[in-house]
């Protein structure tokens, strides 16, 4: 469902064509991208620094902002490694073996791309919420999942599980299993083969998947919003914190938090470009 963007591009010759048409098309495209991408990007930082550096610093060092940062980092720190392991295992399975249920597995991996994040949150509320299947049992044992940190982590893991698998799978399929087989004939055990040959081969696909997974994990809003309950300073991630501030008309605060998330997006794009460049080079 998600067009994989790690594509090794071949340079095509550029056609001349009439200069008028060429520059009109370039102009239109740049105008559109300027209005929709560049200006909003500039706007985030302009709004964040509207009242100067001190107001900005105060907004992002507020205890609630710091706790939102901690929660966002925690959720990503749990979701990314789990989905990394899952992604590599699933990619190996799908790329190397034919077995009954294989296409079902592929479809399931694409699921979070086609399901609304709100519905993703909803299924966990139905599972663990007060009226959910496990609700009464959880209440009895004083365990909190929904409107608590575990729910946020669960929703994040769900939303981000396809990213690593989706990026590693095409790389593994493209490379074939010759090198793995060579390692086996040379006497390597399965794990030895995996660590010494398989993993280094798909390294850039893995890194690419991890940064996309991380960006989404830190920025997820819909699913997390459903399970969070918006308990200030406890169950608010950075995006939720920005929402709360915005709804309280604290625009500088909201955009200060938003600017952190925007920086994350920009870093993601830069690393992504670098990985693309490296994987073309190697």
């Amino acid at each position: 469902m998600h067009p994989s963007t790690l594509v090794l591009r071949r340079r095509t010759r550029t056609l001349g064509g009439p200069a008028v048409i060429r520059w009109t098309l370039i102009g239109l495209a740049l105008l559109f991208l300027g209005v929709f991408l560049v200006v909003p990007l500039v706007a985030v930082f302009t709004f964040a620094f509207q009242k100067g550096w001190e107001a900005y610093a105060a907004a992002i060092s507020h205890p609630e902002a710091l706790s939102a940062m901690r929660l966002t980092l925690t959720a990503a720190a749990i979701a990314v490694p789990l989905n990394l392991v899952f992604g590599v295992a699933a990619a190996w399975l799908i790329a190397r073996f034919r077995f009954p249920g294989r296409s079902l597995l592929i479809t399931l991996i694409d699921l979070p791309f086609s399901v609304s994040p709100v519905i993703a949150g909803l299924i966990f509320v139905l599972m663990f919420g007060r009226q959910g299947w496990l609700g009464p049992w959880l209440a009895e044992h004083d365990l909190h999942v929904i409107f608590a940190v575990p729910g946020i982590v669960l929703a994040t893991v769900f939303i981000t599980f396809p990213f690593v698998a989706r990026e590693v799978l095409p790389v593994m399929q493209a490379q074939g299993s010759d090198e793995e087989e060579a390692a086996l004939t040379l006497g390597a055990s399965g794990w030895r083969m995996f660590w010494r040959v398989t993993l280094p081969k798909v390294k850039w696909g893995v890194i690419y998947g991890v940064i996309l997974c991380n960006a989404r994990a830190m920025g997820e809003f819909g699913a997390v919003s459903v399970v969070s309950g918006h308990v200030r300073g406890v169950t608010t991630t950075l995006p939720l914190h920005a929402e709360i501030l915005y709804n309280e008309y604290d625009f500088v605060g909201a955009f200060a938090v938003a600017s952190l998330l925007t920086l994350l997006a920009l870093v993601t794009l830069v690393v992504k470009k670098y990985v693309e460049w490296r994987s073309v080079a190697s």
Binding site: T5, A29, L30, L33, L37, V38, P40, L41, A43, V44, F47, L212, A215, M218, G219, E220, F221, G222, L238, P239, L240, A242, E243, Y246, F251, A254, F255, A258, L261, T262, L264, A265, L266, T268, L269, V270, K272, K273
Partner: peptide, 22 residues
């Protein structure tokens, strides 16, 4: 431009929402 095209994938949706609304 080539790098920026992916911005909507990378930018948290809430940030996009806030900014466009403003």
């Amino acid at each position: 431009v080539e790098a920026l095209v992916d911005l909507p994938f990378a930018l948290p949706t809430a940030v996009a929402g806030l900014t466009l609304t403003t």
